[in-house]
Nucleic acid binder design. Structure first.
Length: 311
DNA sequence: AGCGGTCAAGTTGAT
DNA sequence: ATCAACTTGACCGCT
């Protein structure tokens, strides 16, 4: 039981729908038109804004019983850009101290912070260029995570390239090239196209990489295992609070692309037996904080009702 | 001020 | 062959 009086910690992903809390970014094209000094000033200004916004996001979560917030990877603009990139620690002024203060705020309110680097991080890639940029990207996340106290950098296994065992072997090798600090934060999530929980669990156990179990992806790409079974197995891979993902299909399970996310979470898709688990559930719904509010209400209502048939 | 096109990056599968 | 989808639309430059 955590401080919110509930067992499950719900997580908000990156942005808000209605609440006026926003994060800024810029484009390489815009930055290139300035001299180096002006570029760094712009990056710092955006980073300061984003640190402040992250603080507001944490406050919002604390006041709305949301226990976790996923931080956008672009929180330091263009930091890992191949031409314009810079060391996170090179950002000037009191920006880093601002982020550290935000980290203390999150800790004080028991708001868990996570990262989910985007699709360009591919540790299973056979291409050395893609691999080096992926490693760099993860190390960047690890640095910022150390400022704010994030305890998860969640990635997918990457492409399968027609030979999943070979791809996973490359993943293992790449993972070994990360710093110890980064490895301690990296988690791996089952996806909806290539790697199922059954594909990933052996590697997760071998290397002690926690599995972020995405039940929606599992339902899109099934491997013969049950939601109950994978939940148990995934829980066992964690040396800290387990993290799961939930979402609902935009056009229903019989629509043409069930992988697309709905604005809200349908209770049918939220496993009943997750209630009462000590874990974080990130809510991947387009309506963001509005979807979480609805989900909280639906979970409360369901808890009051006697057990019904089905999940 | 409003609006449409653009944005750093990888891989897959739908069309 | 092209393009949308993915953890997320925001930003820029034109009219």
């Amino acid at each position: 039981m955590n401080c919110r009086g509930e067992d499950v910690r719900l997580g908000l992903c990156c942005i808000f729908q209605d609440e006026p809390i926003s994060f800024r970014k810029t484009t390489a094209k815009s930055a290139k038109g300035r001299d180096l000094g002006a570029q760094m000033r712009m990056y710092q200004e955006i980073a300061d804004h984003n640190a402040d916004s992250l603080g507001e996001a944490i406050q919002y979560c604390a006041h709305h019983s949301i226990g976790s917030f996923r931080v956008n990877s672009q929180i330091l603009p263009l930091c890992t850009h191949p031409e314009l990139g810079y060391e996170p620690t090179a950002i000037g002024g009191d920006t880093i101290e601002r982020f550290r203060a935000v980290g203390r705020l999150a800790k004080a309110h028991d708001i868990r912070l996570t990262f989910h680097p985007d699709q360009f991080v591919v540790l299973s890639t056979p291409h050395t260029k893609v691999l080096s940029s992926s490693l760099k990207e993860i190390e960047y996340h690890a640095e910022v995570a150390s400022w704010i106290g994030a305890d998860v950098i969640n990635i997918h296994a990457g492409g399968g390239y027609g030979d999943k065992p070979a791809a996973l072997a490359r993943f293992v090798r790449a993972w070994g090239r990360l710093s110890e600090r980064a490895r301690a934060l990296v988690t791996i999530e089952n996806d909806d196209r290539v790697f199922t929980p059954a594909d990933l669990l052996p590697m997760c156990r071998d290397l002690q990489i926690p599995l972020v179990y995405d039940v929606h992806h599992h339902r899109c790409l099934n491997d013969g295992t049950s939601v109950e079974q994978v939940t148990d197995w995934a829980m066992d891979t964690w040396n800290r609070e387990p993290l799961f993902h939930v979402s609902s299909p935009k056009e229903g399970w019989h629509g043409k692309q069930p992988s697309r996310h709905h604005d809200f979470i349908h209770m049918r898709d939220y496993p009943r037996f997750w209630e009462g688990l000590h874990c974080t559930v990130e809510v991947e719904a387009k309506a963001k904080e509005v979807a979480i509010k609805k989900l909280q209400e639906a979970l409360r209502a369901r808890r009051r009702r006697p057990q019904q048939k089905g999940t």
